[in-house]
Design a protein around this nucleic acid. Structure first.
Lengths: 217, 217
DNA sequence: ATTCTCTTGTGCATTGGTGCACAAGCAGTA
DNA sequence: TACTGCTTGTGCACCAATGCACAAGAGAAT
């Protein structure tokens, strides 16, 4: 779809952090950002910042740094943030409801436009200005609202079914909170967030306390 | 604290997944688990499973596989899951409240024993059987309850302050949901979960749809 | 005993990521 | 124009992670 030069996974995972740092610099009045500034705010090595940014085709100015506004645009283009990306949340349990209320998505360009659940208790209920629709109508909900991202906030045993339905409905990427491995086509990227898993990982490092840090994607 | 042989980060991050897969096998009646079985359930390569498990000092039986119960114990020992690990959640906004209700922590050995907020609206309120205590009393709350993990569910601008307070109070590891980089001593491991960041990362892969998958820790 | 089947444990080559260190190059000054 | 100070872009060497491929070993069957 685009002639971009292929950005390494590790770099992609850092771009949102750079973006956040950059926004912070801009809002504090800076019009240019050096790799050292960004590295400092992002908590990484300056050389890494430069190498990462070089993948964007962005070019900074030697002796000066990067044009802040310009860089922001480049990052947004790489991440596909030029336009808003409508999101549906499936599963209106505690987590799903919290996500529905969470303002962070809307403000970052990912408006939540639909909420879905399979239980009759939940369907029809109004949450944060949206009416919960039924899981059986998922395909219609997705197409009518031009939804491209699906968030799975159901228990593990329902996740694969929901995942399949989302893919069938035409969603183009998935974020799942269900503690299970999902089977899905390579063409649909997924990210998994498992809260209990995170604590378990911490357990290891806590035990051998005093050493290396625990990285997060 | 232990003479264990140092497990690579990538392996540590997979242990919880293996654990989940193993529990699944056990509950379906299996008493032994082969690396191929585990690989299948965990969605990874079988050789990787074997190499990962070899770090545990665990030994499987050639021609048979791993003793399921035994392996579970080994994994739990490596992750420090032999005993319960009490948790405090700081920040009782939407996310914090959802986490407080979320049963997944309790069932995985991380009981939530205290809730903390800085606003007078929230303090004193009862959530899921716990009374929200004041941020100023954090040190006491932590020591009285023997808390070793702190979860930060505050807005970004409060996160550093909360983080410092948690470390001072003696918490031994931190899980943060605040979209900001935290400064803290190397002796305290952290994991970061940023929901908006996850969606932004997906944006990249969605754009160049049809290719490589997006890994998550 | 011997043979056959199955599965582990690991050596090794490959790939991906990191960060140092330095040449290249711009802007401002004299 | 020449010089100085600062910052970029990247070559290179190092380290971690991956996964193939195979020898070693356990147990069952003959």
């Amino acid at each position: 779809m685009s002639g971009l030069p292929e950005i390494p996974d590790a770099t992609v995972a850092r771009l949102p952090i750079y973006r956040r740092s950059l926004v912070q610099l801009i809002s504090s009045g800076e019009s240019t950002a050096s790799s050292a500034d960004l590295a400092d705010l992002a908590g990484v090595n300056a050389a890494k910042v430069r190498k990462d940014l070089s993948y964007l085709g962005t070019y900074g100015v030697r002796g000066v740094g990067y044009d802040a506004e310009m860089l922001l645009i480049q990052i947004d283009r790489a991440l596909g943030l030029e336009f808003e990306t409508p999101v549906v949340i499936v599963g209106m349990g505690n987590l799903g409801q919290a996500l529905a209320h969470y303002g962070g998505f809307q403000s970052k360009g990912f408006p939540i436009v639909a909420l879905v659940d399979a239980s009759d208790d939940k369907v029809g209920q109004e949450i944060d200005g949206l009416t919960v629709s039924h899981f059986d109508d998922l395909a219609r909900t997705v197409s009518e609202n031009g939804i491209s991202v699906g968030i799975i906030a159901t228990p593990a045993d329902a996740a694969q079914k929901v995942c399949d339905a989302l893919v069938d409905a035409g969603v183009r990427s998935i974020l799942t909170f269900a503690p299970t491995v999902l089977q899905l086509p390579d063409s649909v990227p997924v990210r998994k967030v498992d809260l209990a898993t995170e604590l378990q990982i911490l357990g290891y490092y806590q035990q051998r306390e005093g050493g290396e840090d625990a990285e997060t994607a």
